[in-house]
Structure formats: C-alpha cells, structure tokens
Design a protein around this nucleic acid. Sequence first.
DNA 1: AAACCATGTCAGATTTTCTGACTCATTAGT
DNA 2: ACTAATGAGTCAGAAAATCTGACATGGTTT
Lengths: 107, 107
Amino acid sequence: MSDPFSYKNKKVISIGVMKELTGLSERQIRYYEERKLIFPERSAGGSRKFSFSDVELLMDIANKIEDGVQTYEIRQEMIRKQKEQNEQVVRQKMIQGQINAQFGIRK
Amino acid sequence: MSDPFSYKNKKVISIGVMKELTGLSERQIRYYEERKLIFPERSAGGSRKFSFSDVELLMDIANKIEDGVQTYEIRQEMIRKQKEQNEQVVRQKMIQGQINAQFGIRK
DNA sequence: AAACCATGTCAGATTTTCTGACTCATTAGT
DNA sequence: ACTAATGAGTCAGAAAATCTGACATGGTTT
C-alpha cells in the first residue's frame, strides 16, 4: 500500500558489489549477517542478494562499529526501533478502524 | 547537477538477476548488448553490471521485439531520441549563457 | 586467565558468468 | 527465388564470484 514497489528495497545486489558500495570486506558483511544485523535474500544456488536499503543500513552499522559500539548493542537498538514502529502502525490502524466504523465503510 | 546520485542508474545488477527481473534469457540479454541496445558496465573480471533503468529499457525492447520491430530499427530510434535530447540540452545551455552574459556573471 | 569480539585468511566446493561456436526457423533484401 | 541477416537455443570449457567452515589473532570484557 505505501511504497508498494521500490528499487530501494529490491534484493538484487551481490556481495561483491556490496563490498564496493560500502567499502567493507566480505568477511565483515557476512559477519554482520551472522550477528543478525542484515538479512539478505538468497538465490536458488545460495548467493546473497542485498538491496540499496541494505547498503544504507550497512554503512550506518559500519559507522557505529567504528565508534566502538558492539554488534549486540546495535542489534538491541534495531529491535527497539522496530518495536516502536510496529506500535505506531498498530495505533494508526486502530484509528483508521474507528473512522471506517464511524462512517460505515465496507472494504 | 540534475539527478546526481540515483539508485536507478547505478550499475549493480548481474545478468542472472536481470534475467529474473525481465523474464528474458541470458542469450537475449547478451544479444541485445551485441546489437548495441544496452550498455552494461563490466566488473574487473568481466561480468556485466546493469542498472534498474537498464531493466526498464530492456523490457521496452522486449515489447518492441514482440511487436516484430527489429533491433536495427530500435537502435535507430534510440539514436534519434538521443540526438533530440542533446539538442535540447545545447539550446538550454545557450540560453543560460545569454543570461549569464547579460548579467555579467562569472563562474 | 578465560571468554568473547571483530576480522583476516585459506582451502575446497559450488555457483555464476563468460566467450565462441554451431544450429535453425523465420524474415528481409536483392 | 536465392541469399543474407535476424533472433535465439544450446553446448563446452574456462574463468570469476561466492559459499561454508576452520583456524588465527589482537583487543576487550569478565
């Protein structure tokens, strides 16, 4: 519904390209996946596929690591933000539900 | 200057992904390159890298081919459009030049 | 000191991509 | 009508890219 089709989120980038775009080593990229900071898709044969938003995310992660933040803390922070965002969505949906009920709209 | 950095034009997509996104065969994609309809970049090792605008372009090409248009004609059409566009840019630059001269602006 | 962290590196296997060639049915040009 | 060109499938062998798992290491925590 919002942003239904976006280049930014299509998983099309291989690890080699990722490495060039971010300046990170393949080892680092794989490690951050292992630590559940990024979630590439996989091709049928098992190759990782990233999106442009993964590129951005990975650069943020790299900055934090440089600042001495550990992957574990980065992960906690991500989970926190994710949760807040979910709640926001739920709130929004409830409001929309009220509106629909009030005006007797059927989908 | 206009559109300085865009995901849409970054050459990051391998031929395998391209094939999935367009539904074309690798053979077709390589053939259209041979006929100078698309211009992938190459990795250091020689692998083709496409952009999302290449994806769009390739889908347009595929449609025309289906309509019986030959690659040669498609190419001529591309060149024509390209030329028009160049002229447009030149005109715009000349106008800007006039303005700058009139107001005595130095870069 | 022991454990963990983030990363480098190496080996061997697998996947992906490359080029070049041969083929072939269908047009297009002469 | 004949010949040439087109668009595309397929195959082979080589080369490039990626994968996992393991071992190594210097820093940090505990």
